[in-house]
Design a protein around this nucleic acid. Structure first.
Length: 586
DNA sequence: TTCGCACAAT
């Protein structure tokens, strides 16, 4: 494109150049303005147009150009230009450079103005550098700039992001009332900090006390209650909100999902679209995660279609959520197609794909994926190791699994957590090597939790090992007394081995503790509606037809040689009923 | 032109 096609004010007017710079849609536009200014000798290090070009480069994310622009100015850059560059860098992949340019600015004899601090603090937070934040805090205080509302808010925000909740609240509390009353954002930061440090009562007090609230104040509270598990209060606040934006809706979708109410997450997503609010990347990722968690393939496909219609890039969080959704809904090939089409993959994307192959028992694909990830210079983290270990345990690759597990500690310096250990116990257990599982468990440097004992117990059940299962069940029950499933397993194992006094003992203790085994359930998704089924459930309006069809299928299956495995059903039910309770569930 | 709230793998 020729530059003249879209710009070139006829007169030498800064304000028109500035307007054109801000309306630029690509770095190329900025370069044209740049060239024009150079050609006519209009560019200096202190011209407002120069600052505008740098400022306009921030949303275009062209850091290399911004840097070369800055360094090729015909005269020394003004503080204004330093600020613009620091801002662009603070929001980029090079936050450390923002701090370097702040230092350069100081050594050039400039004092950082009230504009430089917020950007520099944002960089410190992006770098996870508490020490930088502390240095910036004291320099701001020396320049008497820490009373500036923006600087104060940025300080509190940086401390909050760095996890220094108490320091963030201190900044808020030490703010004089006359500064506080007009600064909603500082209140909002204080609310967010209180929520993150699990002080909902404190957050609520601030929320009730603040002189004026905006939509973000409400969103923070709703999010806080959701994260604390207080779904009802979150819903109540959400309904009372005077104004809802896309963040409010996304918070609800993600909140329901976090609290395992996936159906409400999806109906909320639909209500949002119905209210005429457009979904963004955040919303789609949250909604897709709910589909993945409950295996709602059709809902997932619908959301995928929405994303395609609206030309969302299937990258980043949305791409990862799609890979995860298709994998968890049984469509690992589709997941793999999405994965292959993604241009940017981060550790989470790779992990979702490896886990997808792993849970489908595709060992070779999972392993190749793991190796490809390392080749594309992404260091595996704990999550990626967990995924490949799951692949090993599902495929019975004991030696490879152990090798990977030890390389994690020795080569990658990653401390395995309880989930990794559980995976190894599972690895031995599935292969029937229960003694080794137990030995491994006893040598673990961390305390086993009930999930781990549960994995061992399942392995014992599959391998009919009474001795170790007694130990596992005992430990499990001690750690999680409400876990009735382990008792039922024990009862069945005793019965299977003909140890009737064992059965009696478990029965007695079950009765005494009045534990009731939660019934297993499944659901099927039909035309966008989920239908739940419990074992022996007759509540569905079409129950008659459903069971007739089931009967027909089971008869057919029996003719083909199907024999229900009755070992795992409680043993005191009559034979006839036993096979019934198996097929009436799933 | 500067500050806040929501998302993806285990």
């Amino acid at each position: 494109m020729r530059p003249d096609a879209f710009l070139l004010p006829a007169i030498n007017s800064d304000s028109r150049f500035i307007a054109v710079a801000y309306s630029s849609r690509s770095p190329l536009h900025l370069k044209h303005i740049h060239a024009h200014l150079l050609r006519h000798g209009l560019l200096t290090g202190s011209s407002p147009v120069a600052a505008a070009i740098l400022a306009a480069s921030t949303p275009l994310r062209c850091i290399p150009y911004a840097l070369s622009f800055f360094h090729c100015l015909p005269s020394p850059p003004s503080p204004h230009l330093f600020n613009a560059l620091i801002r662009a860098l603070s929001d980029s992949f090079l936050p450390a450079a923002a701090l370097s340019y702040l230092a350069l600015m100081l050594s050039s004899g400039y004092r950082p103005g009230r504009l430089a601090f917020p950007f520099a603090l944002r960089s410190a937070a992006a770098l996870c550098s508490s020490s930088s934040a502390a240095v910036l805090h004291s320099s701001a205080a020396k320049c008497a700039l820490d009373v500036d509302p923006f600087v104060r808010t940025s300080l509190a925000d940086a401390y909050s992001k760095l996890g220094s909740h108490d320091l963030a609240l201190k900044v808020f509390q030490e703010t004089p009332p006359w500064l506080l009353s007009s600064n909603i954002l500082l209140w909002n930061v204080a609310i967010t900090v209180s929520c993150r440090s699990e002080r909902m009562n404190h957050a609520r007090r601030l929320f009730d006390e603040m002189p004026e609230r905006n939509v973000a104040s409400w969103n923070s509270m709703v999010d806080g209650y959701m994260k604390a598990g207080d779904v009802d209060i979150a819903v109540e606040l959400f309904e009372r909100m005077p104004e809802k934006n896309v963040v409010s809706w996304t918070t609800m979708v993600a909140g329901f999902s976090l609290n395992r109410d996936y159906e409400r997450a999806l109906t909320t997503f639909d209500s949002m679209l119905g209210a005429g609010i457009r979904a963004n990347n955040f919303t789609l990722s949250a909604a897709l995660a709910s589909c993945a968690k409950m295996g709602a393939l059709n809902a997932g496909i619908r959301i995928h279609e929405y994303a395609r219609r609206r030309a969302f890039r299937e990258d980043g969080a949305v791409g990862t959520a799609l890979v995860d959704m298709y994998s968890k809904c049984g469509k690992v090939e589709l997941a793999s197609q999405i994965f292959a089409g993604m241009k940017e993959r981060d550790i989470e994307t790779w992990t979702a794909m490896i886990m997808g192959w792993a849970i489908h028992g595709c060992w070779g694909e999972a392993f190749h994926c793991f190796e490809d990830m390392k080749c594309s210079s992404i260091e595996p983290d704990g999550g990626a190791f967990l995924a490949i270990l799951v692949a090993c345990s599902h495929a019975g690759k004991i030696d490879t699994g152990l090798e990977i597990f030890y390389s994690m500690k020795c080569e990658y310096k990653i401390q395995p957590n309880i989930k990794h250990y559980t995976c190894i116990v599972d690895l031995f257990g599935r292969a029937g090597r229960l003694k080794e599982a137990l030995e491994f468990l006893n040598l673990m440097p961390i305390e086993p939790d009930y999930v781990l004992w549960g994995a061992l117990l399942s392995a014992c059940r599959a391998n009919k090992n009474i001795e170790i299962s007694e130990l596992a069940a005992e430990k499990l029950l001690k750690l999680k007394p409400t876990h009735s499933g382990s008792q039922v397993i024990m009862s069945n194992m005793y019965a299977g081995a003909g140890m009737w006094d064992g059965v009696e003992k478990v029965r007695a203790s079950l009765k005494k503790s009045s534990l009731i085994k939660e019934p297993g359930w499944s659901y099927i998704e039909l035309e966008g509606k989920a239908h739940h089924f419990f074992s022996g459930d007759l509540s569905h309006p079409s129950a008659g037809e459903i069971y007739a069809k089931l009967e027909e299928l089971v008869t057919k299956a029996k003719k083909e040689g199907y024999q229900p495995n009755m070992e795992w059903v409680l043993h005191d039910i009559e034979e006839e009923d036993k096979s019934g309770s198996l097929r009436l569930h799933s």
